[in-house]
């Protein structure tokens, strides 16, 4: 709680070993507060939180050496070079690394050619990569990445996605917060949509899309009024869009079965287009607005 504001309100979540769990939501939704509670950096006013089986309220110090943390808007030390920063961090975790190990780690995050560059001179994406390298020095089972790509250009963002995918392949468990829908959709095994301190939906991207995406839409190009009547006679919901007819595939029905029914009914159309809902539609349906750069817009 921040004064009267309840930042995180009775949320219940479980992250499984080896998965990428993404907490998706707008700015101020409570994502960072949740992550900081789980990192042991913030005390919850009530409730229970366990990380790697350790109760944070009783022994958060134990968690420190076992998790990797990339805070939101991470900035490295201006006057340390990447190998120095990694070496420093590894010493803090009691795992001194030799020069080769440091280089391997920097190679892993794509900073192998930035060994001589001071932290202040790294680009935004390179700084986050260095942050991820530092988060990995303790060889943690669990890594918290708090909005790792916020503020980065699309190319740098996609580069970081590759790093995160590699970590996932290496068997790391990743707790990722983001306000980019496509990031959650690209990377996450499971997604929790958070808004105003509450988790409003959670599941795998496919599950969320199936349950909350509003169903697939089939567009029958040039079908006209005749097509609309014919579709209606099949018991399907449809609407006109110019000369096109938009048919909503009901939840729990397979799209290919609906297409087969339409084809059998000899409904005249020039072309058929399938529009599959994405996480954006799920977010719109659950929160009531579009998520644009961390802000909900109607």
């Amino acid at each position: 709680m921040y004064g009267e504001l309840t930042a995180v309100d009775h949320i219940d979540l479980q992250v499984f070993s080896g998965e990428v769990y993404s907490m998706l939501g707008p700015n101020g939704a409570g994502k960072t507060t949740t992550v900081e509670i789980l990192e042991g950096l913030r005390d919850p006013t009530s409730g229970e939180a366990k990380v790697l089986g350790i109760d944070l309220r009783k022994a958060y110090r134990e968690v420190r050496g076992k998790v990797g943390v990339l805070p939101q808007l991470f900035e490295p030390w201006d006057n340390l070079r990447p190998p120095e920063a990694v070496s420093y961090w590894s010493s803090l975790f009691g795992r001194d690394m030799d020069a080769k190990q440091v280089k391997n780690l920097l190679d892993l995050v794509g900073l192998g050619d930035k060994q001589k560059v001071l932290g202040a001179r790294l680009s935004g994406g390179e700084k986050r990569r260095l942050g991820i390298a530092m988060a990995l020095v303790g060889n943690p089972e669990l890594i918290f990445l708090d909005e790792p790509t916020t503020g980065l250009d699309p190319q740098a963002r996609r580069g970081l996605w590759e790093v995160i995918r590699d970590l996932r392949k290496a068997g790391k468990t990743i707790f990722l917060t983001t306000h980019y829908l496509e990031e959650a959709e690209e990377l996450a095994d499971r997604v929790a949509i958070m808004n105003r301190g509450k988790i409003v939906a959670s599941g795998s991207p496919d599950e969320l899309i199936t349950l909350h995406g509003g169903g697939t839409i089939l567009v029958l190009r040039g079908a006209g009024e005749e097509g609309l009547k014919a579709v209606g006679s099949l018991g399907l919901q449809a609407q006109m869009d110019g000369r096109d007819v938009q048919v909503r595939v009901p939840p729990l029905q397979r799209t290919k079965d609906v297409i087969a029914n339409i084809t059998r009914a000899n409904i005249p159309f020039k072309d058929l287009e399938t529009i599959r809902p994405v996480l954006e539609d799920v977010f719109f349906n659950m929160v009531g607005g579009k998520l644009v750069e961390g802000v909900v817009k109607p």
Binding site: E36, G40, E75, G94
Partner: peptide, 13 residues
């Protein structure tokens, strides 16, 4: 301001 204390708090230091 730059979040270094929080970062350090996530280490055993």
């Amino acid at each position: 301001g730059r979040g270094y204390f929080k970062l350090l708090a996530s280490t055993p230091l």
